[in-house]
Nucleic acid binder design. Sequence first.
DNA 1: AAATCAATTAGATAATCATCTAATTAAATA
DNA 2: TATTTAATTAGATGATTATCTAATTGATTT
Lengths: 188, 188
Amino acid sequence: MTDTNAELVAVFKALADANRLKIIGLLARQPYSVEQLAALLNLKPPTVSHHLAKLSEVGLVGAKAEGYYSMYYLEESALKKTRLLFSKQDLSAAVADMDMDAYDRKVVKDYSLANGRLKTLPAQRKKLDAILRYVVKSFDPGRRYGEKEVNDILGRFNNDTATLRRELVGSGLMRREGGGGDYWRVET
Amino acid sequence: MTDTNAELVAVFKALADANRLKIIGLLARQPYSVEQLAALLNLKPPTVSHHLAKLSEVGLVGAKAEGYYSMYYLEESALKKTRLLFSKQDLSAAVADMDMDAYDRKVVKDYSLANGRLKTLPAQRKKLDAILRYVVKSFDPGRRYGEKEVNDILGRFNNDTATLRRELVGSGLMRREGGGGDYWRVET
DNA sequence: AAATCAATTAGATAATCATCTAATTAAATA
DNA sequence: TATTTAATTAGATGATTATCTAATTGATTT
């Protein structure tokens, strides 16, 4: 999604070929011309040119004219840079701005009728949790609701208000005061 | 060409896709099921399965059954191992062996400096031969080289170009035309 | 300026691969 | 045991890409 990610993909794509890896290995020891690389790898010069172009695009190799030849060399700084990007932290950060609620939305959509009510309540824990996170949004944080009021709101989603109420409390999304007291939505 | 190389290619291929990198980024935060990842990435479950299989093949992710779901997680040790590959030494060692056999590789490694030059020339016949087989690869078969050109190429390996030149001819890996004529690499 | 030679570009082809739908498997609950 | 549900496999398709030959470019040497 982010630049970091796109940059990494480009570098990995450049490295994801046996012949290009061989080129890197060879250039790690000394510079070579296209012609020499072609001979060593048993490829035609245009093919090597193509590979070198890919490596060059991501900065992994450079070239320097030398007589008739242009000698390609390994750009070590690019290797170091890539290693820095390829860390758990950076990879994680690259997806931080991703839509983390997509799963919940999909579950709600799958269980919703056209009128906004829920067909049924999911049996699976994970899906029920997604539904509960959705339903609880109908309650204002910082306000108290009597039991009848709670049932009215939950009744808009499904007739089984008792289950919804119990699960909302059980999952910690709502709390209940004492025995027959009020309910409130827990701040997140 | 070697197994090492094939393994490296597989790892880089596994990482050379935007969605697979996103999966890694997500799993870096917490485990997810296939279904959840599919929702988050806006892909169908079979596609995510396919990506996870690729990542799993190279050991970057693992899975653990949990109720109906199988939760995938990041194998951090593999991530660290991959990260270390981004150095000149490692890529060179893992890849530059090309079609050398194990013995030659070991000798060359033992006598090579980090920059690819040779510390010294081995005194033992067998080891010197291994070095010569390695050095001669810098010459194109089917091309002729003047003495100066030969020295330039050999000079990249060691300052003692005279010995290298003499031994290359003596071992039959290269030939020389007449008295002061050109050199060429003998076809194998 | 003409000739030479390495490198690149253009264009074609065959292989690889990401993605989907449909069908199947595997695992867990009722 | 039957049912449910997530995951995987099978099969198809469109896009990407590695590789080749042929043509062109660009730069050096005569």
